[in-house]
Amino acid sequence: MPPRNGIGVTGFVLGLVGLVFSPIPFVGVIAWPLVILGLIFSIIGLVRVKNGKASNKGLSITGIALSALGLVVCVVWIFVFNAAVNEVNNELNRTAKVSYEITGDATNVEVIYGEVLNPVTETVPALPWHKEVENKGVYKGGTLTVSTGETGGSVSCKITVDGAVVSTKTASGEFATAACTGV
């Protein structure tokens, strides 16, 4: 009876296809069973060659190598994906210290500050004015708007996030507005 080479060839094909799919994000999930089965079939094919039941030693060894390489790529993707998920999770849960500051010589100014969807409005009789808040989540900064009204004067706004100045603006005159946005 002539040697039968089907198992070694199957291992080679599964290993090759698995290796091709393994570096592709999300699609590479189908590579896991392919490279594992490719490794198993290629090893069985190599054992069959050693027992004289098959004659495709080179193809079986190549199948083992391709399957092993595909498996390594799949494992590397697990670490890369986990690192990315952890980085996003850490950023979402990080708390930022936000400082809002207004200086100038204007009086009775209207101040609007805070997160874009949740602003706070105050009338401030005299400057300087300062507020500190902590923001948690995606939005780490805020907005700060100051208007001089009809009494006029000059105003400057500044937003600092975690000790770094992210926005400054200055305005002067009647009904002047300085608007800072910091992320």
Rank of each mutant, 00 (worst) to 15 (best):
Gly45Glu: 12
Val111Gly: 10
Leu66His: 08
Arg48Cys: 02
Thr145Val: 15
Ala96Arg: 00
Gly114Lys: 12
Ile61Pro: 06
Glu132Asp: 07
Gly63Trp: 02
Ser99Pro: 00
Val85Lys: 07
Val124Cys: 10
Leu39His: 06
Asn86Gln: 07
Tyr113Leu: 07
Val133Pro: 00
Ser55Thr: 11
Thr145Met: 12
Lys131Pro: 03
Lys131Ala: 14
Asp105Phe: 13
Gly142Cys: 05
Glu101Thr: 14
Gly104Val: 05
Lys57Pro: 06
Phe26Asn: 02
Ile40Met: 10
Ile36Leu: 14
Gly142Asn: 08
Asn82Met: 07
Trp32His: 04
Glu122Ala: 13
Glu132Asn: 07
Thr107Met: 09
Leu71Met: 13
Asn56His: 07
Glu122Arg: 15
Glu110Trp: 09
Asn118Lys: 13
Leu69Arg: 02
Val35Ser: 04
Ser55Arg: 13
Ile112His: 06
Glu110Gln: 14
Glu115Arg: 15
Ser60Gln: 09
Val124Asn: 12
Glu132Gln: 12
Glu110Thr: 15
Ser55Phe: 03
Ile40Gln: 06
Leu69Val: 14
Val73Gln: 04
Leu69Lys: 02
Asn118Ala: 08
Ile102Phe: 04
Thr148His: 12
Gly137Thr: 06
Asn82Ser: 14
Gly142Glu: 07
Gly38Trp: 01
Tyr113Gly: 08
Asn135Gly: 01
Glu132Tyr: 01
Thr95Phe: 01
Asn108Val: 05
Val98Leu: 03
Asn56Asp: 15
Trp77Gly: 10
Glu134Ile: 00
Thr121Glu: 15
Ala84Glu: 08
Leu59Tyr: 05
Pro128Phe: 11
Ala31Trp: 05
Lys136Ala: 04
Val116Arg: 15
Lys140Val: 12
Ala65Asn: 01
Gly104Ser: 07
Ala65Met: 12
Lys50Pro: 03
Thr148Cys: 14
Ser55Pro: 10
Val98Phe: 05
Val116Met: 14
Phe41Val: 00
Lys140Ser: 05
Ile30Gly: 01
Pro128Cys: 14
Arg48Ala: 13
Lys136Arg: 12
His130Tyr: 11
Leu127Ala: 14
Asn56Cys: 13
Asn118His: 13
Cys74Lys: 05
Leu71Cys: 03
Val80Trp: 00
Thr143Gln: 13
Tyr100Thr: 11
Lys50Gly: 10
Thr148Leu: 11
Ser99Ile: 08
Val85Asn: 03
Gly28Asn: 03
Leu59Glu: 14
Leu39Ile: 06
Ala96Pro: 07
Ile61Phe: 11
Ile112Tyr: 04
Thr107Ala: 11
Asn93Lys: 11
Tyr100Cys: 05
Gly58Met: 05
Gly58Lys: 11
Leu66Asn: 08
Ile36Cys: 02
Lys57Ala: 11
Ser42Leu: 04
Val27Lys: 01
Val47Ile: 15
Gly38Ala: 09
Leu59Ile: 15
Asp105His: 12
Thr148Asn: 10
Phe79Pro: 00
Leu59Pro: 03
Ser99Trp: 00
Thr107Phe: 06
Thr123Asp: 06
Glu122Pro: 06
Asp105Arg: 10
Ala84Val: 01
Gly38Asn: 06
Gly137Cys: 01
Glu134Val: 02
Val120Pro: 03
Glu101Pro: 00
Cys74Phe: 09
Arg94Val: 00
Ala68Arg: 04
Leu34Ser: 04
Glu122Asn: 09
Val47Pro: 01
Pro33Ile: 03
Ser99Leu: 08
Val72Cys: 02
